[in-house]
Amino acid sequence: MSTPDMRLADAFVALAGTPDDSYDVARHLSVLTGHSVALLGVGAVGAVLRAGDQGAVRVSASDPRVTQLETGAVDRCEGPGHDCCRTGALPETVLDTAPAHQRWPHYTPRALALGYTRVAALPLTVREETVGALVLLHSRSTPLTPVELALGRSLATAAATALVRERELTRSRVLTSQLELALTSRIVIEQAKGVLANRMTLSMDQAFDVLRSHARSHRVKLADVALDVVEGRLNIADPHAA
């Protein structure tokens, strides 16, 4: 049997995650929304995440119907998640009111149809950058307490930190592999020149010409041709031999 403190600790450990090769954003959002429902005692939680610079957005929720609700809101650029991403934390809103219908004409009736009467949204923020929003839906007669909102903010921050960390790690891995690939490609080309120079009794410049001609005529990258030569998979015929 777990105490509330233990459940809280479990949630933060799960959200901290271990960003590695197996890291999965969808699973992370699912962990966030699942733990948020359990700890905050709300009806459902949706997470809206800006997936990159291209304007792509990912949506996840504790309930598939809420995933649909939030996805529809993203498509129409409305709803508490959208507004929160733009302006920061959104105060709790009672949905069955004229202002709510006016503000979110598509979102409000659908949320009400699912049985939710109140909604609040908290930003997923790291280092002053908002990467998404956590949407809290419920049908209680009273609003969320300041303690519940503070806990929600902490969950959102923990989740956003792990997400941004993973994003930075991925970017760094890509840049590092690009740098290493650029260097090793140039090295392998030099090695292939040596192989061909010896095989065909050519100068290094002539060996490079042979490599380049082969790459051009076969529409293959020079570095790929060089690697095949060095690893013995390609035996280029001497163009001058005939």
Partner: peptide, 19 residues
């Protein structure tokens, strides 16, 4: 990185020796 020395002649010699 463009001007870093990749030891081209050492790698050419390695290719030559390996063949």
């Amino acid at each position: 990185y463009e001007t870093a020395d990749l030891r081209p002649v050492v790698n050419q010699a390695a290719g030559l020796l390996s063949e």
